[in-house]
Amino acid sequence: MFDITVLLPEGLSLSLAFAFVGFSFFTSAITASLGLGGGIMMLAGLAMVFTPTVVIPFHGFVQLGSNGFRALMLKAYIHWQLILWIGLGMVLGSLLGGSLAVALPESVFLAAIGIFILYSVWGPQPKVAVRGPFASFFGGTAIAALGMIIGATGPLVANFLKSLTDRRDVVATHSMIMTINNLAKVTAFTLFGFAFGQYLPLMLAMIASGFLGTWLGSHLLHRMPERTFRVGFKAVLTLVALNLLRSAIWP
């Protein structure tokens, strides 16, 4: 009988692998329903198990599948004119940020991810109007460089979409921008020597479950009152972020 555990990263149990596959379904459902949030929760969950040097590229690969599928489903609503200069900036930013990320100590990675999660949950969301090719290119570069260190930058990308009023346009265009960002991130980490091979079966399984979560997410989350969901969402992410900061200070 084939031993499925040989497909898993070293030291990861089968039960935990199944938990991550289910978690990918859940976080994709959140993003499909609310537009944002699932990527940050995925980042927090991965950070509880894997080292920071694995979390960011792993997260980028899984989110590439999730965002790519969402963009494909909503391709008719993508505003391509908003994407060109942002995408070019993200290619440059991923290379610049990757050269820094591979040199950072693990404790700095943990602290950066923890602080980012806390800010995303409790801090004021940035309200920066991004207009024009230069501003889009510079913004894309900065966001992609930052994403190589903290992982989930979806809330920052949302600033490029202030001019869109239809929710379908926002979700579709946001998904396409994040697809470009994640593709650039995965490419940069590959160039800098990250070995995706041992994680590939688990990542592909998580992407597949993410497809289902994206497809069915809105139906599953309608049963929970939004206020109850958001309180629980903030509480869980806060506890995870505080634990990451504790690990950074007291390994």
Rank of each mutant, 00 (worst) to 15 (best):
A19P: 09
L244N: 13
G114S: 02
I83D: 07
M48Q: 12
T190R: 01
Q125D: 12
D169G: 12
L242H: 14
V171Q: 02
P105I: 03
V91W: 04
S247V: 08
G213I: 02
H59V: 02
I113A: 09
G97H: 06
V157Q: 11
I86T: 10
G11Q: 02
S107H: 11
F192I: 05
L221T: 13
L183M: 11
T190S: 12
N243H: 03
V55K: 00
G93S: 05
F26V: 15
G89H: 06
F233W: 07
L183W: 00
G114A: 03
T214A: 14
N182Y: 06
V102I: 08
F196D: 00
T179I: 07
L43S: 13
A71P: 13
I115E: 08
F192E: 04
V108P: 02
G193T: 09
T190N: 01
V170R: 06
K127A: 14
A152G: 01
L14C: 10
H174I: 05
L183A: 14
G60T: 13
L36W: 03
G60N: 13
T173M: 10
V62F: 01
L92F: 09
L164P: 02
L82N: 06
R223V: 15
S107M: 06
V240H: 09
I86R: 04
L220M: 15
T165A: 02
A205I: 04
S247D: 10
A111F: 13
S94H: 08
R167V: 03
A142D: 10
A172W: 06
D166W: 08
M203L: 14
L164D: 03
F18V: 14
Y199E: 01
M224T: 15
N159S: 07
M176Q: 00
A76G: 10
P133Q: 11
D166T: 05
L110K: 14
A32V: 00
V62L: 05
K185Y: 07
L110V: 02
D3W: 01
T153C: 03
G60W: 05
I180V: 12
D166S: 12
P105V: 04
P133D: 14
L8W: 11
A101S: 15
P133A: 13
V171P: 03
P9R: 00
Y119M: 10
K234T: 04
S209Y: 03
G37K: 02
G93Q: 09
P201R: 03
A158S: 15
L12S: 00
R246T: 06
I207H: 12
L43R: 12
T187F: 04
L212I: 08
Y119T: 04
T214F: 05
L244P: 12
F134V: 15
G65A: 03
T187Y: 02
M176R: 00
F189T: 01
F50V: 12
A144I: 07
G213Q: 04
L242Y: 11
K127C: 11
N159G: 11
L64E: 08
A103R: 13
L191Y: 04
I40Y: 04
F138L: 14
V157M: 13
K75S: 15
A32S: 13
A144M: 06
S218D: 15
A111Q: 07
V157E: 04
R227E: 14
L46A: 09
F229I: 10
S66I: 12
F134S: 13
A101F: 09
M224Y: 11
G68P: 08
L7I: 06
F137G: 01
L64N: 09
G139I: 11
